[in-house]
Every structure is written in structure tokens, then in C-alpha cells.
Amino acid sequence: MAVFTVVNETDLAQWMRHYDLGEVVDFRGISSGIENSNYFLTTTRGAFVLTIFEKLTAEQLPFYLDLMRHLASHSVPVPDPVPRDDGALFGILHGKPATIVTKLDGKAELAPGPEHCGEVGQMLARLHLAGRDFKSHQPNLRSLAWWKETVPRIVPFVDGAQRELIVGELAHQEAFFESADYAALPGGPCHCDLFRDNVLFAPAAPGTNHQVRLGGFFDFYFAGCDKWLFDVAVTANDWCVDLATGRFDGARLTALLRAYQTVRPFTPEENRHWRDMLRAGAYRFWVSRLYDYYLPRAAAMLQPHDPTHFERILRERVMHADASPLCN
């Protein structure tokens, strides 16, 4: 969500002619993130987000936008793409595909407690089940094939211990992905990037027993069809860890997993390979952060993430069996 492509007032006025969204009240860039150019857009009709896609092509984009529309229609709180005057969900701005989506209520919770994690776990399971009848298919583009392509480009930049870990874990994951148990894992459309800053919480409604209310999930532009357990592992590796050590907080992890299973219980194969998938989730983000750190792109507001965070998490998952396994 960094600003790679700058949009001025003239650009915006021309772009808004294709939408029935009223007059522009406010327009400003969003600095967090590293993939797309994003702007908050407020009009007399409401609050929206304008996204310009820096890597995704016009051929790839319909999967993401159609998935968001599908989930929104199944009562999963996600940004809903706004159709243009010709019915299309995106157009071309500065030679790149771009879209406007509805803005969710709430703000990110960067220091979550068990109740936040429970809300996330339950909604993630609802998202997985809602995607079962989604007709389009696109694989997770940051999975094994991308790791195999990207790791050789990173290896020259890392030291001996890091090189041993990154190459050794790739071999472990290749073997896991080729196993019969992996093939048996259930899957479908996944968010694949459900970090704390991609979820919003709003104040709980008066008179309820809840202290928090989930406002919604956003930033679906790493979504893809994958194993549901991978999505849970990615989420747990962010929401349920101590950021300084990468170790799990037992109360938060238990809350997330139990809430998820109130909607969709885990299979025996998922229980057996929880640790393998936690390693896969950590590996995916260590590799991508190393790539962004050593091979960055220019951006007006780029803030690359620290790759050592997910190196710590991966080493923790490799060295220690999970002390709070999936709940039955």
C-alpha cells in the first residue's frame, strides 16, 4: 500500500468521471505496505479506497475483485469493488489497472488480545466456507513455485547460517508439498496475508457481551487458492506471537484456533501437519521480506519490513514443536 504511482487532481477528476460517486471531499495517499499504490478517497457518497496495481495484470485482477464481491455477497465483511459506469470493476490509470472499493469501518488492532484473535479465527473460517462455491481459480502466487524461483536470487545476499536455513527449509517444504497428506488437505480461496494491519475492529454494539467487533478483512491482493491450513498458519504466526521472540502466546493461539473450529473443524491430516504449515507460513514471509529488502523497487512512500522478524519465527517453529497444538 505504498504510493508508487502518483495521482494528481487532474488525474483524479478524469478517473471519477467513470463513477457515480458524487463529488470528491478528500483524497490522500496511504503509506503502509509495499505492493500497490493506495489512496483514501472520500466523496459525498461515502468513504472508499482507490488502488492502483503495480504488479498484478489486468488478466489476473478479476480473480481478486470477483472474490471480494463474492465474499461480500456471503456476509463476509470485506471491501466491495464499486462498478464503473460500464459495469467493469476496474479500469486503466497511468497505464496500470486500478479500482475503487468500499472502505471498512474501524481501525487496526496492533496489540491484540484473545478476544480479537477469536473474532479473527471465526471470521476466517467463515471466509473459507463462503469461498467453496466461488467459480474462479488462481493459485497462491507466493507459494512453492515462487519460493523456488526467488530463493536463488536471495542466497547471494545472506550469511552462512541464513543460507543453510533458507535452502534447508525449501527442501523440507518441497517434500511436504509432494506428500499424500498434503494433497489430502482441504482448501479453496484464501486471504494468504491476514496480518494485524489487514483487519479492522470497531467498537462493540451497546448491550452486547463482546468488548470488540470485527469491522472486516481487507487487502486481498495476495489472495489465492491454497490449503486452508496455510491461511490459518499465516494468521496465527502474526496474531498470536510475541513480536520480540516469535514465540506463541498460548491464550491468543487457543482463542483463534477454538473460534475457527466452531465454524470448521480441522481434519486429522491438518492436525498432523500443523507444525509443517506453520513453518511454510513463516518461510513464505521471510523469503518475500528478504526479496523486498535486498531487491527493492522505487516508491514515493516505501517502508520495507524487517526480514529478521520472520527468520526468528521460522527458527522458532523449526526448533520447537508447537506447545499449543490444534484443538479437537
Rank of each mutant, 00 (worst) to 15 (best):
M1T: 10
V3G: 06
T5Y: 01
E9R: 15
D11G: 10
L12I: 07
A13R: 13
Q14G: 06
Q14E: 11
W15C: 02
R17G: 00
R17S: 03
H18A: 14
Y19D: 03
D26W: 04
S31K: 14
S31M: 09
S31D: 12
S32D: 14
S32G: 08
G33K: 09
E35K: 07
N36A: 04
N38A: 12
Y39P: 12
F40W: 15
R45Y: 10
A47P: 09
I52R: 10
E54N: 13
K55D: 15
A58Q: 15
E59A: 15
Q60G: 02
Y64G: 03
M68H: 10
R69Q: 14
L71V: 08
L71I: 09
A72E: 10
A72V: 04
S73T: 12
V82N: 04
P83L: 01
P83Q: 01
D86Y: 00
G87D: 02
G87Q: 01
A88M: 00
A88Q: 07
G95R: 00
K96Q: 06
P97A: 00
L104H: 14
D105P: 14
D105R: 15
G106W: 09
P112G: 07
H116D: 09
G118D: 04
E119L: 15
K135D: 11
S136G: 03
P139F: 03
P139E: 06
W147Q: 08
W147K: 04
W147R: 05
E149Q: 12
E149G: 00
T150P: 03
V151R: 03
I154G: 02
V155P: 03
V158A: 09
G160S: 08
A161F: 01
Q173P: 08
E174A: 06
F176D: 11
S179Y: 15
S179C: 14
A180H: 15
Y182Q: 06
A184H: 10
G187W: 12
C190L: 06
D193I: 05
L194F: 08
L194E: 07
F195H: 11
R196A: 04
N198P: 06
L200H: 14
P203W: 02
P203L: 01
P206N: 13
N209T: 11
L214M: 05
G215Y: 07
F217K: 07
F217V: 02
N237P: 08
C240R: 12
F248A: 02
R252G: 03
T254H: 15
A255S: 08
V263I: 11
R264D: 04
F266Q: 08
P268R: 12
E269F: 05
E270P: 02
R272M: 06
A282Y: 14
Y283K: 11
R284F: 00
F285W: 13
W286Y: 11
V287M: 02
S288W: 07
R289F: 00
R289N: 00
R289H: 03
D292M: 03
D292T: 02
Y293S: 06
Y293F: 11
Y294K: 00
L295M: 13
P296I: 02
M301H: 14
M301A: 12
L302N: 09
H305E: 10
H309T: 07
H309P: 00
V318T: 06
M319Y: 11
A321K: 13
S324R: 13
S324T: 15
